[in-house]
Simulated scan of single mutants.
Amino acid sequence: MDSRSRRDILKLSSIVIMAGLAGCTSQREPTSDAINQEQKTRIEELEALVKSKDKQIEELHREDSISEFSTDIIERAETMARDARNATVTVGGEGGSGGTGWILDANKGYVVTNSHVVIDNNSFSIQTFDGDSSSATRIGYYEDMIPDVALLQMDLEGIQELPIGDRSNLTKDDPLVTIGHPGTIGNWIMTLGRHKEYDEVFDTLYSTVPTSRGNSGGPLLTLEGNVVGVVSGSRLANDSEDDFSKSDVLYTQLPERDKLTTSAPVETLLESVDEWT
């Protein structure tokens, strides 16, 4: 039995349980305190069972999303990312603008993010995973967002920085991780994908690491925890040429085209930092 069919069965069982709950919450007057307590106990048992089934469904969804990776890779990625979260921050500007940042140099308080995150402001609010906050000033960025990297400076002490890797050591399909703040999901979200290619013409790394609005500026990490890129956005994958014209399907949600996440190589970032500091 595949995971999808198991998930469907779990959903069905949850519906049956909910039906049982509905039966237990009848508006008829109880005949005694004992019966009333028995109904209350039964309702609590069924509610606990529904929560258990829902948890199993979530776990199966998770299995579907990461099934292409071995258990060893998943465990290594999770362990590394949980540690790297301590060096990943939220970057907030005026008017609701913001994104993700990460600590490049703890002693100097250098925070890396994207130019498009900081282009409209000079000062920013920073928050760490532990909940510490600080103001930060813009040290350098590019108005044309080429490359889409920027540098801030804050004055927090006792912060953790991320080690720098080497883009040239990447090979196709190497596992990669990012940590970011996709606003519709939450903050410090860890995602796992694969390296696809380095585009020398556009000086861009392409990967399948899932990202969304708010991930901008986040670190692209190897399983060893080394930064190889700065997440900047996405583009359609080369094979995303599906044409849904004249489809007979009545969509309740538009189909999504496959996208690749774009990142500026860490070497390009370091060259910019040398220019600004």
Rank of each mutant, 00 (worst) to 15 (best):
E197H: 02
G140P: 12
E45R: 12
T113L: 01
L49Q: 10
S123H: 06
S216E: 05
K108Y: 03
K196W: 01
L260M: 11
E224T: 12
V231Q: 07
E275D: 08
D239Y: 13
E75K: 08
L192N: 06
N187I: 04
D174V: 12
S240E: 15
V209Y: 06
L260W: 14
M190R: 08
L104I: 04
T268H: 02
H61S: 08
Q27D: 14
E38D: 10
T208F: 02
G180A: 10
G101A: 02
V249Q: 13
G95K: 05
R85L: 02
G95W: 02
S32M: 04
S123V: 13
T261I: 10
V117H: 02
N36R: 14
T41K: 08
G217C: 09
E75V: 04
P147G: 14
S14Y: 10
R4E: 11
L192C: 06
N238T: 11
A264N: 06
F69W: 03
E94H: 09
N238A: 15
A19I: 15
K246Q: 12
V209T: 11
I57W: 07
V149S: 13
T184W: 09
T31K: 07
T31S: 10
I185S: 14
D148M: 07
L236K: 13
T262I: 05
D105T: 04
S263Y: 06
K51Q: 12
M1Y: 06
R42Y: 11
V266I: 15
E197V: 03
T268M: 04
T204I: 01
E78D: 07
G186T: 11
S70G: 07
T204M: 03
I126R: 03
D130S: 15
D33N: 06
G229W: 01
S232F: 00
Y142P: 06
M145H: 13
D242R: 12
D132P: 02
I126F: 03
R6W: 05
G186E: 11
V118C: 04
N86H: 12
T178F: 10
T25Q: 13
K172H: 10
E38P: 00
L12N: 11
L156H: 04
T211F: 05
A48Q: 13
Y198A: 01
N107T: 12
G183T: 09
K11H: 11
I119L: 03
I17T: 15
L205Y: 01
T79K: 10
W276V: 02
L220R: 08
K246F: 15
L220D: 09
Q37R: 12
D203I: 01
L162V: 08
T208G: 01
I43M: 09
D173C: 05
I66E: 07
L254A: 15
N226H: 13
I15C: 04
Q56L: 14
I15E: 14
G229K: 03
G23V: 11
I139G: 08
L156P: 03
G98A: 06
V177R: 12
I185T: 15
S13P: 00
I185A: 14
T268I: 09
G131F: 09
D72V: 02
G165W: 08
F129S: 08
G99W: 02
I73P: 01
G95T: 05
I74M: 07
G95F: 03
L205E: 03
E58R: 12
G140Q: 10
I17F: 12
H116I: 02
N36E: 15
